[in-house]
Amino acid sequence: MPKRRTFIVTPIPNLQRVTERGLAFLECREDPGINGRRVYEDLKENKQRLVRNRFDYWLGGGIHDQYFHGWSDPEYKDCFVFKWKDRKHQRLYGFLVNPRPRTDPRFQLCVLISHAQKTTQKTDPSELNGAKRLRQEPEVINAVKRAYPELDLN
Protein backbone atom coordinates (compact mmCIF):
# COMPACT_ATOMS: atom_id res chain seq x y z
CA MET A 1 0.00 0.00 0.00
CA PRO A 2 1.53 3.36 -1.03
CA LYS A 3 2.47 5.72 1.77
CA ARG A 4 -0.08 8.47 2.32
CA ARG A 5 1.27 11.92 1.52
CA THR A 6 0.28 15.12 3.30
CA PHE A 7 0.27 18.34 1.33
CA ILE A 8 0.43 21.93 2.49
CA VAL A 9 0.00 25.02 0.32
CA THR A 10 1.85 28.07 1.65
CA PRO A 11 1.31 31.53 0.17
CA ILE A 12 4.63 33.24 -0.66
CA PRO A 13 4.93 36.25 1.63
CA ASN A 14 6.12 39.81 1.00
CA LEU A 15 5.20 39.90 -2.68
CA GLN A 16 3.18 42.38 -4.73
CA ARG A 17 -0.28 42.55 -3.23
CA VAL A 18 -2.99 42.12 -5.85
CA THR A 19 -6.48 40.65 -5.76
CA GLU A 20 -6.37 39.02 -9.20
CA ARG A 21 -3.56 36.55 -8.62
CA GLY A 22 -1.79 34.61 -5.90
CA LEU A 23 1.45 32.63 -5.62
CA ALA A 24 2.11 29.73 -3.28
CA PHE A 25 4.38 26.75 -2.73
CA LEU A 26 3.20 23.19 -2.49
CA GLU A 27 4.95 21.24 0.25
CA CYS A 28 5.02 17.56 1.05
CA ARG A 29 7.32 16.15 3.70
CA GLU A 30 7.12 12.68 2.19
CA ASP A 31 8.14 13.75 -1.32
CA PRO A 32 11.65 15.21 -1.74
CA GLY A 33 10.86 16.05 -5.35
CA ILE A 34 8.46 18.75 -4.16
CA ASN A 35 11.31 21.09 -3.39
CA GLY A 36 10.27 24.50 -4.76
CA ARG A 37 9.99 26.24 -1.42
CA ARG A 38 13.24 24.84 -0.03
CA VAL A 39 15.23 25.83 -3.11
CA TYR A 40 13.66 29.31 -3.17
CA GLU A 41 14.36 29.91 0.51
CA ASP A 42 17.93 28.65 0.20
CA LEU A 43 18.72 31.11 -2.58
CA LYS A 44 21.18 33.87 -1.74
CA GLU A 45 19.56 37.26 -1.22
CA ASN A 46 20.51 38.65 -4.65
CA LYS A 47 19.20 35.55 -6.43
CA GLN A 48 16.03 35.53 -4.39
CA ARG A 49 15.40 39.14 -5.43
CA LEU A 50 15.74 38.04 -9.03
CA VAL A 51 12.99 35.49 -8.52
CA ARG A 52 10.81 37.81 -6.44
CA ASN A 53 10.93 40.38 -9.23
CA ARG A 54 9.62 37.76 -11.62
CA PHE A 55 6.91 36.72 -9.15
CA ASP A 56 5.82 40.34 -8.75
CA TYR A 57 5.80 40.90 -12.49
CA TRP A 58 3.46 37.96 -12.98
CA LEU A 59 1.26 38.94 -10.02
CA GLY A 60 0.92 42.43 -11.49
CA GLY A 61 -0.32 41.02 -14.79
CA GLY A 62 2.91 41.44 -16.74
CA ILE A 63 3.78 39.34 -19.76
CA HIS A 64 7.37 38.37 -20.53
CA ASP A 65 8.22 34.88 -21.73
CA GLN A 66 11.81 35.21 -20.60
CA TYR A 67 10.60 35.38 -16.99
CA PHE A 68 7.67 32.96 -16.93
CA HIS A 69 5.14 31.29 -19.16
CA GLY A 70 2.52 28.61 -19.51
CA TRP A 71 2.03 26.17 -22.38
CA SER A 72 -0.33 26.39 -25.32
CA ASP A 73 -0.33 22.58 -25.65
CA PRO A 74 -3.76 21.55 -24.24
CA GLU A 75 -2.01 18.68 -22.47
CA TYR A 76 -0.09 21.15 -20.31
CA LYS A 77 -2.40 24.16 -20.41
CA ASP A 78 -2.45 24.45 -16.60
CA CYS A 79 1.31 24.07 -16.14
CA PHE A 80 3.42 27.09 -15.42
CA VAL A 81 7.11 27.91 -15.03
CA PHE A 82 9.20 30.76 -13.64
CA LYS A 83 12.66 31.08 -15.15
CA TRP A 84 15.92 32.76 -14.35
CA LYS A 85 19.53 32.24 -15.29
CA ASP A 86 22.40 31.78 -12.91
CA ARG A 87 25.15 30.09 -14.94
CA LYS A 88 22.61 27.35 -15.64
CA HIS A 89 18.94 27.77 -16.53
CA GLN A 90 16.88 27.66 -13.35
CA ARG A 91 13.22 26.69 -13.34
CA LEU A 92 10.39 26.60 -10.83
CA TYR A 93 7.54 24.46 -12.14
CA GLY A 94 3.98 24.49 -10.94
CA PHE A 95 0.37 24.68 -12.00
CA LEU A 96 -2.38 27.25 -12.32
CA VAL A 97 -5.69 26.82 -10.58
CA ASN A 98 -8.67 28.84 -9.42
CA PRO A 99 -9.44 27.78 -5.85
CA ARG A 100 -12.43 30.13 -5.59
CA PRO A 101 -14.59 29.37 -8.63
CA ARG A 102 -17.79 30.35 -6.83
CA THR A 103 -16.90 33.65 -5.16
CA ASP A 104 -13.90 34.87 -7.17
CA PRO A 105 -14.06 33.23 -10.62
CA ARG A 106 -11.30 35.41 -12.10
CA PHE A 107 -8.76 34.67 -9.37
CA GLN A 108 -5.71 32.81 -10.59
CA LEU A 109 -3.37 30.96 -8.25
CA CYS A 110 0.02 29.60 -9.26
CA VAL A 111 1.13 26.73 -7.05
CA LEU A 112 4.86 26.13 -7.39
CA ILE A 113 6.11 22.61 -6.91
CA SER A 114 9.59 21.76 -8.02
CA HIS A 115 12.90 23.27 -9.00
CA ALA A 116 14.99 22.11 -11.93
CA GLN A 117 18.37 23.15 -13.22
CA LYS A 118 19.17 22.76 -16.87
CA THR A 119 21.90 23.41 -19.38
CA THR A 120 19.47 23.92 -22.26
CA GLN A 121 16.26 25.89 -22.77
CA LYS A 122 14.23 22.74 -23.49
CA THR A 123 11.63 21.63 -20.97
CA ASP A 124 11.74 18.18 -19.43
CA PRO A 125 8.19 16.80 -19.89
CA SER A 126 8.48 14.84 -16.64
CA GLU A 127 8.29 18.14 -14.71
CA LEU A 128 5.11 19.09 -16.54
CA ASN A 129 3.58 15.64 -16.14
CA GLY A 130 4.34 15.76 -12.42
CA ALA A 131 2.70 19.17 -12.04
CA LYS A 132 -0.31 18.03 -14.05
CA ARG A 133 -0.72 14.90 -11.93
CA LEU A 134 -0.46 16.79 -8.64
CA ARG A 135 -3.00 19.36 -9.79
CA GLN A 136 -5.58 16.60 -10.05
CA GLU A 137 -4.73 14.85 -6.79
CA PRO A 138 -7.59 15.22 -4.26
CA GLU A 139 -5.18 15.78 -1.34
CA VAL A 140 -3.54 18.62 -3.24
CA ILE A 141 -6.89 20.11 -4.21
CA ASN A 142 -7.91 20.07 -0.53
CA ALA A 143 -4.62 21.71 0.51
CA VAL A 144 -5.19 24.46 -2.06
CA LYS A 145 -8.73 25.02 -0.83
CA ARG A 146 -7.56 25.17 2.78
CA ALA A 147 -5.03 27.88 1.95
CA TYR A 148 -7.35 29.77 -0.41
CA PRO A 149 -10.93 29.22 0.74
CA GLU A 150 -13.92 30.70 -1.04
CA LEU A 151 -14.42 34.37 -0.07
CA ASP A 152 -16.96 35.30 2.54
CA LEU A 153 -19.06 37.76 0.59
CA ASN A 154 -21.35 38.60 3.51
Binding site: N14, L15, D56
Partner: peptide
Protein backbone atom coordinates in the same frame (compact mmCIF):
# COMPACT_ATOMS: atom_id res chain seq x y z
CA UNK B 1 0.43 40.07 4.84
CA UNK B 2 3.56 41.86 5.91
CA UNK B 3 5.35 44.57 4.00
CA UNK B 4 6.64 44.11 0.48
CA UNK B 5 10.17 42.72 0.12
CA UNK B 6 11.44 46.02 -1.33
CA UNK B 7 10.83 47.58 2.07
CA UNK B 8 13.70 45.62 3.58
CA UNK B 9 16.32 48.19 2.59
CA UNK B 10 17.16 50.73 -0.11
CA UNK B 11 19.19 48.13 -2.00
CA UNK B 12 16.13 45.93 -2.36
CA UNK B 13 14.08 48.82 -3.79
CA UNK B 14 16.86 49.77 -6.20
CA UNK B 15 17.05 46.12 -7.26
CA UNK B 16 13.39 46.27 -8.20
Amino acid sequence: QTVHWTEKNTGAFVNR
